[in-house]
């Protein structure tokens, strides 16, 4: 009976659009995931903000030992890494794999600089007497910024993996979307730092 059925030609079959909306599954998944991440970081940031308003029993307040100049530099570094990330994407979308590789590597290096800065910041804070267990603020501060740092680190590992793939020729222009998706993650991490820098570092009572 089935051979008598004539199906109307399916319009989105020809142009390589596999999906109902024409949007890529992977990108949609990444955006859904980022939407979910908003609530994760939102929770950590609000826990920090609430606990920052409470008096500390022991040890210094976080705001007493901020090194704003250094953190500003870190923020700048991360911001620039977003620029290099987007340049890498533009490169691979044009088929310019050499530039894409350069910018991916640069992004990873800038990200690593940021993480190194965070390790430095944490170490010096601990030396100044603010350990993880010292008081409410310190736990909240280290958890929030550390969690962000872990995100950056995972981003760098993904970037370096992309670099390796690209060197081996496993990242052709058709797969530029892979770079775009890693880029989305990377920019998201940057955007979270924009929040943290203002709300946690610059505005303090």
């Amino acid at each position: 009976m089935t051979d008598t059925i004539v199906h109307a030609p399916i319009p989105d079959q020809s142009e390589g659009h596999h999906t109902s909306t024409g949007l890529s599954n992977e990108k949609l998944a990444m955006w859904a995931f980022l939407g979910s991440e908003c609530l994760l970081f939102g929770g950590l940031i609000s826990v920090f903000l609430i606990y920052r308003n409470k008096p500390v029993g022991v040890g210094p307040k976080v705001s007493q030992i901020y090194d704003i100049p250094f953190t500003s530099v870190s923020s700048f570094v991360l911001l620039m890494s977003s620029l290099t990330m987007v340049l890498a994407l533009a490169g691979i979308q044009r088929g310019d794999h050499r530039r894409a590789r350069i910018w991916i590597l640069t992004t990873a290096a800038l990200g690593a600089t940021f993480v190194a800065g965070q390790v430095y910041e944490f170490t010096s804070f601990v030396r100044e007497g603010l350990g993880y267990t010292t008081n409410l603020q310190s736990s909240a501060f280290y958890t929030l910024t550390g969690f962000h740092g872990v995100h950056v680190t995972i981003g760098i590992i993904m970037l370096l993996s992309l670099y390796t793939l690209s060197l081996r020729g496993n990242l052709p222009t058709e797969k530029a979307e892979t770079v775009e998706i890693v880029g989305l993650y990377w920019h998201f991490v940057d955007v979270v730092w924009i929040l943290i820098f203002t709300v946690v570092y610059l505005i303090h009572p």
């Binding site: 909306t21 949007l23 990108k27 949609l28 955006w31 859904a32 980022l34 939407g35 979910s36 991440e37 908003c38 609530l39 970081f41 939102g42 929770g43």
Partner: peptide
Amino acid sequence: LFRRFFLTGILLA
């Protein structure tokens, strides 16, 4: 659609 996903997350948070 992407913008809506992201905004939903941000606004809910």
